[in-house]
Simulated scan of single mutants.
Amino acid sequence: MCGVPLPDGLVDGSRLPEPIFTPATKAAFGEHDENVDFETMVATTGRELGEQLRDLTLAVYARAEEVARGRGLILADTKLEFGRRADGTLVLGDEVLTPDSSRYWDAATWEPGARLDAFDKQFIRDWLLQDSGWDRGSGDAPPSIPGAVVTATRERYLQAYERLTGSAFVSS
């Protein structure tokens, strides 16, 4: 994965011996980011910045994983985006550790190799690709998402928020 050798025998949902850093290039709007290996990233960022980005990413992940585990969730993976201020200061930007940028599983039901229901937008993807009747390769626009699917997705996001924070979500 991104140039990092993985152990044999892994199945979907297996826990890795240690977290890995999997950089990606930022694609143009509407395109998919491209996973790259560390050396490819370093060719763009320089070694010092590349190592700093890797170390910061793994530190944020380690702390978030610890919090999630303590709340009965498994933080399977996450996406972090960094940028620089005009003065060169490195900043963590965009959303951080939300169900849109991270995959959380319920630790009580986690079983590697089995169906892993995540607290993320996979619920919508599953509906779209399995239940909506839409053919991804047809060239047709995807159908509108039914209110029940939107509501169920929102509930999963709220469950993740409340479990991670230990507080009820209050909308303003």
Rank of each mutant, 00 (worst) to 15 (best):
V91A: 11
V36W: 14
T45M: 14
Q159T: 14
D8G: 12
E162N: 10
T57A: 11
E111V: 06
V170H: 14
F119K: 02
M1L: 04
T25D: 11
T40K: 12
V60D: 11
M41F: 14
S167R: 15
L128D: 09
L16V: 14
D106R: 00
E162V: 00
W134F: 02
A27N: 12
K26L: 13
F21N: 09
R103E: 03
L16H: 12
L97C: 01
A43Q: 10
G137N: 02
G83F: 04
D77S: 07
V170C: 15
L49Y: 05
P142Y: 11
A68E: 06
A24V: 10
L164D: 11
G50C: 10
A43N: 10
T109G: 02
Y157L: 06
T151Y: 14
D131E: 15
V149S: 12
G50K: 05
L6W: 09
D106P: 09
S167E: 11
F21T: 01
W134H: 05
V11W: 05
P146G: 06
G72A: 07
A160C: 15
T89K: 00
T98R: 07
E48K: 11
P7H: 03
F21I: 00
F38E: 14
I124C: 04
G137T: 10
T98Q: 03
D33Y: 14
L10E: 09
L10V: 09
R125I: 04
R47L: 13
L164P: 13
E155V: 02
F21S: 13
L49D: 07
T22A: 07
A160E: 06
A118V: 07
A114H: 05
R47H: 08
P99K: 08
G93N: 11
D140P: 01
P99N: 07
H32K: 07
S101W: 13
V150W: 12
F123I: 01
L164I: 02
M41Q: 11
T78Y: 04
R163H: 13
G13V: 06
R71V: 01
A108R: 01
G70L: 11
G70Y: 00
L90P: 05
E66H: 13
A27K: 03
R103H: 13
E95S: 13
D87M: 09
D106K: 04
A107H: 03
L73H: 01
L10A: 08
I145P: 09
T109F: 03
R54C: 09
L116R: 10
F169M: 10
N35A: 07
